[in-house]
Amino acid sequence: MSTSISSSLQEEDLWEGGNKPFKASYGKLMMWFFIVSDALTFSGFLVAYGFSRFKNIDSWPIADEVFTHFPFLHGVDAPMYYVALMTFILIFSSVTMVLAVDAGHHMDKKKVTFYMALTIVGGAVFVGSQAWEWNNFIRGEYGAVETRGGQIYQFENQITGKRVALRDFSMSQPKDRTQNLRKKGIWFTSESSLPTFTVDEVITGFRSNNDLIIKTEKLDEKGHKIRLSREESLKKIQQAKYVVEGANLIRNEYGNRLFADFFFFITGFHGFHVLSGVIINIIIFFNVLIGTYERRGHYEMVEKVGLYWHFVDLVWVFVFTFFYLV
């Protein structure tokens, strides 16, 4: 260590060779390094999403028609309200985090404890909300059929203009096809659960109900999904190959296959960040409780996890915009 540094500085505040660069401590700078690289990771994902969307610009699913659920409001079409609520929860837990950091600057252990606890609760509520959102997305609501060419056909009542679920019109027929399980067949073969209806049941039901038309994936110039006429629908329904209910990594009832893949990947990766943020917050919370930072003389650790926590909030702001709004 150089001797020219004034004696009022503590030795542990110094880096080898002099004062702290940018007047920020080592830990804080490294947290910023991590945040910058993680921001690039997330922008890589979001830009890849943008790439796929531009590639399928005239047939991408419309978020308002996909995310329409709100807790305790069954059957009510409530686009966006739930994600907006999630956004508020996350921003609010960001605020309690800054308040904890601020209380830390004043060495106020009680307030830091209180605000850290609130932050943890907010984060946990957010992760829970995301799980609920995933559950709705995976289960689906209306169901659709997929053609040989990989296009999704949804069904609509041409008089009311409302979506119609497969279970409302499919004709039940005697089935000879059951789910292939290891215990029933050959020991090395099995398959995932079969859709509730077969393609034949959907087609028969569709033919016998004159109000039904097909809603395609294609968008018109105004950005609305193109509906086929009844005659065209009857012709096109022949091409149905699979019944799709809900979403998985292979196909989904909302439209383009990549849509569900990106949804799972990006919101999943973000949710994992929130989860790890909550866990780190819990660790710091207990450190505050047992007085580690009180003895250390500063609450900089709270500031560092705070940076990470705000970053997670920042990423959500972008995910919210590009997945739900744009």
Partner: peptide
């Protein structure tokens, strides 16, 4: 510190956005 964080991100992200969106549009 502000500049080294913000300029790095803006430059790299703008570049990535430009190149991938133009490419996506081309494939369309």
């Amino acid at each position: 510190l502000q500049a080294s964080i913000v300029i790095t991100l803006i430059f790299l992200i703008a570049y990535l956005v430009f190149i991938l969106l133009v490419e996506g549009n081309y494939i369309y």
